[in-house]
């Protein structure tokens, strides 16, 4: 559990010291991609807890989820449908589900 936390702290401090801001237009894409990766992390933690973790599945899942989510927003913007909310809802639900399962494991030990 320590290593991911260390990674998170490294990432945050990198982001804080890196002088990079995203144009307002793209903030939406970024937020969805962010949620997708958050979902991936929770999924990974759950799989790790269940001892079903597969490295390739996890890494590919992370990238495809983030890209697909951003792509969905882009397509939605072209079609005039707010597919943004679809991604938000799906990832949000999954995060809470995974969190519930992780919590059970946490409580059982």
């Amino acid at each position: 559990m320590a290593l991911p936390l260390v990674g998170l702290i490294i990432g945050i401090s990198l982001g804080v010291f890196f002088p990079l801001t995203i144009p307002v237009e793209y903030a939406k894409f970024m937020s969805v991609a962010l949620l997708a990766s958050l979902d991936s992390v929770f999924g990974g933690l759950r799989a790790g807890a269940e001892e079903k973790f597969d490295n390739t599945v996890f890494i590919t899942g992370f990238f495809t989820n983030a890209l697909m989510a951003a792509g969905l927003v882009y397509i939605g913007e072209g079609l005039g449908i707010d597919l943004y909310y679809v991604a938000l809802l799906a990832f949000g639900l999954r995060i809470f589900q995974n969190l519930a399962i992780i919590r059970r494991y946490f409580l059982r030990k």
Partner: peptide
């Protein structure tokens, strides 16, 4: 992945 996530979080 947490590194990437943290980075994105901070930037966002």
């Amino acid at each position: 992945v947490c590194v990437v996530l943290g980075f994105m979080l901070a930037v966002q």
